[in-house]
Amino acid sequence: MLTKRIIPCLDIKNGRTVKGINFLELKDAGDPVELALKYSLEGADELVFLDISATEERRKTLVQLVQKVAQTITIPFTVGGGISSVEDVELLLKNGADKISINSSAVKNPKLISEISKNFGSQCVVVAIDAKLINENWKVHLVGGKVATELDLFDWAKKVEELGAGEILFTSMNNDGTKNGFANEALAQLSKTVNLPIIASGGAGTLQHFEEAFSIGNADAALAASVFHYNEISIPNLKKYLKTAGIPVRIQ
């Protein structure tokens, strides 16, 4: 049986793992290679590695760091941040990334999704969508959540599926950093809208929040950063909890 995935996210800035609250106030959370190995050994199902400074500072993702992580861990990982061309993708895949994640650049240039998908397969294209609930409408935001667009979350999700995305990473900006749980209603609606795996992101605070993202939100994977980085939730405990709650998970 296909299991639900638990994905620690390593937000990278200047080679260190950082985590902010509501996308701001960045705090240092450790060495990314060390953390990647720790999570891999603890039973994380995948890793996401986001160079969060890349888009706004137009810096290319840290290729060397990607290679070091790839050499170290035995599970798949996704790299995002500052990717705006097929050449960027090729460089990352060549250095050991399994998937790439695009966000702002996909909105600015939707054709990028189909170009990457055609060249490397849809399985490696994760489209990350940051959205905020404004007046009962989920609006897509860009550049790490700083720039609002008129784009509707569900319309955009449908569009990226048509263009050849392999997976959607949905971050609710209303939930991110709050530790009050994932945006389960929007997640469930996303799963009805598209036939792609959905990664839930933003709001993890307790074991139960993860359970709800799967049982209510119907997510295929749940992503979190700070609860893992600051040892508030351990992955083995989380998986045990989920298994007891009847959620299929991989236990090593």
Partner: peptide, 13 residues
């Protein structure tokens, strides 16, 4: 088939 999410992505036994 489209009765399941495609791609089949993740850990399966």
């Amino acid at each position: 088939s489209n009765l399941v999410k495609v791609p089949h992505m993740g850990w399966n036994d």
